[in-house]
């Protein structure tokens, strides 16, 4: 464990909690892409199946349970509890265009052609594009609530910090996982234009609105 991975995990946890509280407190999921949240629930489910088989540390197991629990709670609130506030018209990204190629790639390029390993690889590839429906929805509505931009910032920051974690582990431990690194770089790149808008607008107190 190193500082980049710890702050990365905490940033990820912060994002998940921010979103959960935003929906719970405002009793509304307006501006939130339910499709992205479903993809994240799939990412955690396929990646954390080893919860039952491999014990790495108390921290590792606790965080996995928290991530999975929050992900499903968020999906439940979007599609059940507050479904009246779900903006389905703007959440129109075709997720099959993500899941199918990612599934095919996970079968073709992986570390080991075993069931668990292919699921893990699928989860890594899917996570790198899971935010696209959310970013697409913001581009369609042309704006995002400020709390939603903080959620996205923490979510994008988490994988950016993981990149520093991988540099650290390569340098100090000689460890590197090319699949996770490539997917993590792609994932972070997808946030770049959002990061630019976040820094130039939201941090200056303005609302995030895209030129429609």
């Amino acid at each position: 464990m190193n500082i980049f991975r710890l702050t990365g995990d905490l940033s990820h946890l912060a994002a998940i909690i921010i979103l959960l509280l935003k929906i719970w407190k405002s009793r509304s999921c307006a501006g939130i892409s339910g499709k992205s949240q479903i993809l994240f629930a799939i990412v955690f489910t396929t990646r954390y199946l080893d919860l039952l088989s491999t014990f790495i540390s108390l921290y590792n197991s606790c965080m996995k349970v928290i991530y999975i629990g929050c992900a499903y709670a968020t999906v439940y609130m979007i599609y059940m509890k507050f479904r009246a506030t779900y903006d389905g018209n703007h959440d129109s990204f075709r997720v099959e265009f993500l899941v199918v190629p990612v599934g095919g790639l996970a079968v073709l390029i992986n570390h080991d052609f075993s069931f668990m390993e292919i699921l893990w690889t699928f989860s890594i590839y899917l996570e790198s594009v899971a935010i696209l429906p959310q970013l697409f929805m913001i581009s369609k509505t042309g704006e995002a609530e400020t709390i939603t931009t903080h959620y996205l910032f923490c979510l994008g920051l988490y994988r950016a910090l993981y990149i520093f974690n991988w540099v650290w582990r390569f340098y100090f431990e000689g460890f590197f996982d090319l699949i996770a690194i490539v997917a993590g770089v792609v994932q972070t790149i997808l946030y770049c234009d959002f990061f630019y808008l976040y820094v130039t607008k939201v941090l200056k107190g303005k609302k995030l609105s895209l030129p429609a």
Binding site: R47, I56, M63, H111, D112, M116, A180
Partner: peptide, 10 residues
């Protein structure tokens, strides 16, 4: 690719 299937990261 040499197997690295013990994933200790979240």
């Amino acid at each position: 690719v040499i197997g690295r299937t013990q994933h200790d990261e979240l």
